Simulated assay, not measured.
Amino acid sequence: MKRYTLLFLLPLLFFAACSSHKAIVAPVANTKKVYETQVDSFLDIARQMNPAMLVDSAGVSIPSQFIATVNLNLRKPNYVILHYTAQDSLQQTINTFSQVRTQVSAHYVVGKDGRIVHMLNDYLRAWQAGVSKWGSITDMNSCSIGIEIDNNGNEPFTEPQIKSLLILLAQLKKNYNIPQANFIGHADIAPGRKPDPGPFFPWKRLAEKGFGYWSDDIVVPAPDNFDYVTAFKLMGYDTRNINGTIDAFKRHFIQTDITPQMTQLDLNVLFNVYRKYQ
């Protein structure tokens, strides 16, 4: 029987991700073996062609069968979530993502010297977003690529880091046709719970390259009846904890002030930015 596209594509993607490159950090023992075992288990699931086993309210089985379609491919990421590692080194982060007990991972890690470690195939689901929400999406892990940047949260990002990050983002945007609005931070999707990538992150510079939005230099003042809570919702923010939402917004778009009050300047910036999301 002719094999289907999915059965060929996943192994090819896996082997491409594991091709030989010069080591830039020390790998953790046995992680490659565990990775291969996990991917094999996913392939076994993808190969299953079992019909849905359904019964009606009287307990009578509903006839069903599996007839394979020839029109399929892999689900692709549609968001990029940016983080700082909050750790002391690239090696420490690699070690963290290589331990089962930590239950956390990301697709990419960007070192201070600009080196990039690709840790998970882009089509696979990393554990990086946690409890989060953006718009109506409550499982951000299933639709996003996670990028961790080596930074403890209290220091500027390095120029080599940002240059490498911009190149990586350009490739991801092109490969997966990711909309400009869908490059966001961990704080944006988990307001009040996560602060990263933090007030040192150069969001304006990213927006100038087409990754996320930023306020114009000259903004139209927000109208007197401007409903900022609704504006947050239209952008995608979870507003159930409004103080957390304000904090997340200001960490991203204000950066010089993260107090939980909306000043007139904050309202003007929000009015300018949220209209870009429409």
Rank of each mutant, 00 (worst) to 15 (best):
D56G: 03
V229P: 02
K233I: 01
K209P: 02
P27R: 04
Q92K: 15
N152H: 13
K173N: 11
C18T: 14
P11W: 01
R193E: 10
V104F: 12
V220Q: 13
F8H: 13
G111Q: 05
Y84H: 15
T230L: 12
T5P: 10
N268W: 04
G59I: 06
F253Y: 13
F200D: 13
G210L: 04
F157I: 03
I145Y: 01
K209S: 12
K76A: 15
Y35D: 07
A129L: 01
P179N: 09
L168V: 09
A190R: 15
F211R: 03
F97M: 14
N268K: 06
A23M: 03
I81E: 03
K250G: 00
A181H: 05
S57P: 00
P27D: 04
L120M: 06
N50M: 08
Q128N: 09
G111P: 00
W203T: 11
G210Q: 05
D247P: 00
Y84I: 11
V117L: 08
E36L: 09
A16F: 12
S61F: 07
E208Y: 04
L74E: 11
L124P: 00
E36G: 03
W203S: 09
I116T: 12
K2V: 11
R101K: 14
L12I: 06
S215Q: 03
R251Q: 10
M262W: 06
P11R: 04
L9M: 08
P202Q: 15
I242C: 01
I62L: 14
I62P: 02
D266M: 03
I67Q: 14
I149R: 09
D238K: 07
A16L: 10
S105Q: 10
N177L: 11
P27F: 00
Y277M: 05
Q180S: 05
L13W: 11
T263C: 05
V39D: 01
A23T: 07
K173T: 08
F232N: 05
N71V: 04
Q264F: 01
L72A: 14
A231G: 01
V104L: 13
A126T: 03
V34H: 14
L120C: 03
Q99P: 06
D113N: 14
L43K: 06
A106C: 14
W203H: 14
I242K: 02
P156F: 03
A46L: 15
D238A: 08
D224L: 10
S61M: 05
Y79K: 09
L172H: 10
A222T: 02
E36K: 05
D188L: 08
I67G: 05
M235L: 03
L9P: 02
Y84E: 07
K112D: 01
N78W: 00
Y4K: 09
S61V: 02
I162C: 06
T5Q: 13
T96S: 12
Q128W: 01
